[in-house]
């Protein structure tokens, strides 16, 4: 039986890698993947705590998060496709139309 804290530590590590990926990479696709990784890390926390407290709420919440992630990926990748078509780049440094 693995202690719940181990899952939480693993989840924190994965989340941190996601944050680092968002911060250091300039490719919008990889930033997107890092966001997905962060979502997954949080899902792992929910599942671990769901077992820890012997309730189903955490697992239901994970399902909802997965639905939101699926919708988010569909819309986000459509936006990426539109940006690539219009500006011919995946580097977010080049997408600065809204910058003051």
């Amino acid at each position: 039986m693995v202690p719940t804290s181990y899952y939480l530590i693993l989840s924190a590590i994965l989340f941190t890698f996601g944050v680092v990926g968002v911060l250091i990479r300039r490719n919008v696709l990889i930033i997107f993947m890092s966001v997905e990784m962060m979502l997954n890390a949080v899902n792992l926390t929910f599942a671990a705590l769901s077992l820890h407290f012997l309730g189903l709420n955490g697992q239901i919440f994970v399902l909802m998060a997965m639905v939101v992630a699926a919708a988010e990926v569909a819309v986000g990748l459509a936006i990426v496709m539109t940006v690539v078509r219009n500006r011919d780049t995946t580097n977010i440094e080049d997408v600065n139309l809204l910058k003051g």
């Binding site: 699926a70 919708a71 988010e72 569909a74 819309v75 459509a78 936006i79 496709m81 539109t82």
Partner: peptide, 13 residues
């Protein structure tokens, strides 16, 4: 939500 996401993706792409 999934329906809106699907429509949004189709419109954007």
């Amino acid at each position: 939500l999934l329906l809106v996401g699907m429509v949004g993706a189709v419109v954007l792409a």
